[in-house]
Simulated assay, not measured.
Amino acid sequence: MATLHRFEYQADRHTMIHLHDVLIQPFIDSFKTPPKKLILDFDATDNPIHGDQVGKYFNRYYDHHCFYPCMCFVVIDC
């Protein structure tokens, strides 16, 4: 099961509040003036690997071994 899929279906209200307190609010507090809009775009991408590296797995969609990191891109509207 993909990382984003596991997160989406296992996260509950308590998890979201904790995520906000630990990650999102400190990020917002790092600005002198809080942004008017903050868009978090979570996306995963394949990173092809070669050899016998720890953490690799075979991705059937891309048809190769890879790491599949979950990244967060931030769009800020100040």
Rank of each mutant, 00 (worst) to 15 (best):
D63V: 00
D41H: 08
K36S: 12
E8C: 13
D46R: 07
R13W: 08
K56T: 07
C78M: 11
D52N: 12
H64R: 06
M71L: 14
H65V: 09
F42D: 06
S30R: 01
G55D: 00
R60D: 09
P48E: 04
V74N: 05
K36E: 11
V74C: 04
Y62A: 13
K37Q: 11
P34M: 06
L4Q: 11
Q53W: 11
D52P: 02
N59I: 04
L38I: 01
L40S: 01
H64I: 04
C70G: 01
Y68P: 04
F42H: 12
L38R: 00
Y68G: 00
D21E: 13
Q25P: 06
D46V: 06
H5A: 12
A44D: 07
D12P: 01
K36M: 05
I17G: 01
K32W: 04
L40H: 10
A2F: 11
P34Y: 06
A44Q: 05
D52F: 06
C66E: 06
Q25R: 15
D46P: 10
V74T: 03
K56P: 02
F73V: 09
G55C: 10
D46I: 13
E8R: 12
L23I: 14
V22F: 09
V22L: 09
H14F: 12
L23P: 00
K37Y: 07
D21M: 08
L4H: 05
M1R: 11
D63H: 06
N59A: 05
V75A: 03
E8W: 14
D46Y: 15
D52C: 09
D63Y: 07
F58M: 05
H20D: 13
I39C: 09
R60A: 04
L40I: 02
H18G: 01
L23Y: 14
A11E: 06
